[in-house]
Amino acid sequence: MRNLLVYVGAIIFTLYFLIPLYILVLIAFSPAKFTLESLYPPLYFKGFTLSNLVYAFTQYNFIHPFLKSFFVASLVGIIAILLGIPAGYGLSKLPGKLAYAFIVVLLITNMVPGLVVAIPISVEFIKLHLFDSIPGLALVQELVTLPLAVFILQGTFSAVPKEVEYQARIDGASTLSYLSNVLIPVALPGIVAAFLISWMFSWDEFTYAVLLSPIHPTLPVEIYFNIERGNELAAVAFSLVFTIPVIVLTLILQKYLKGEYLAGGVKY
């Protein structure tokens, strides 16, 4: 009886999570007359076609936005890790109260509204020739991801007992070789999580992207522009290719996406 309830719940949630994706696939692979052009579009496949996709990829520029998104996201992930590791390590060594204060300040930065930052920055960026560029966008997105990455990393680093570091020092390791031989390997899952979350954030990011890189847009912005222009099928087709690799990635790296990392600062 108890189990029945669990299963009913499980099935409801499964449907809830999957139906929107199903609809997306349905529209992408059905002839338009069964989807966008009908008043009550059927909920199942009445016909199957690849022509929507073929049309979208041949008629519209897809590759450039895709690559731009990819490079920006990767750059965001890499910067987050490169800066986040030393910052997280430093924070994990500070006494509790001070570290807490820093984290609060970091998270405040993370919360400053994108629009507030983006509008004045766009002016500066034009001057600095960073407007519409990959590094420029990545740098600004770092505002949001870096604090989160530092937060996650300091959480994972703090979980490593300090005796292990003492031991490494006594065993003759310098700070650098402690980091590379012990701390980073031990904290690898947390590092992967920080990278992944930064990467996924950037891949998804819209506010900065639309304001600071509208001429050569990233993929989400390109999809939005297509919707605005009424090229809905192209938008759907792009959405699909945009989504599937990330879902696959998410599923493969699922074990790294744990709530513990996000709750990094929660201590008992």
Partner: peptide, 20 residues
């Protein structure tokens, strides 16, 4: 001297083994 130059060994209460 810093710990790495003191040529001593230490065993901690929780052993401090390198988990990786």
């Amino acid at each position: 001297l810093p710990p790495e130059k003191r040529n001593l060994a230490m065993v901690f209460q929780n052993y401090a083994l390198y988990p990786n």
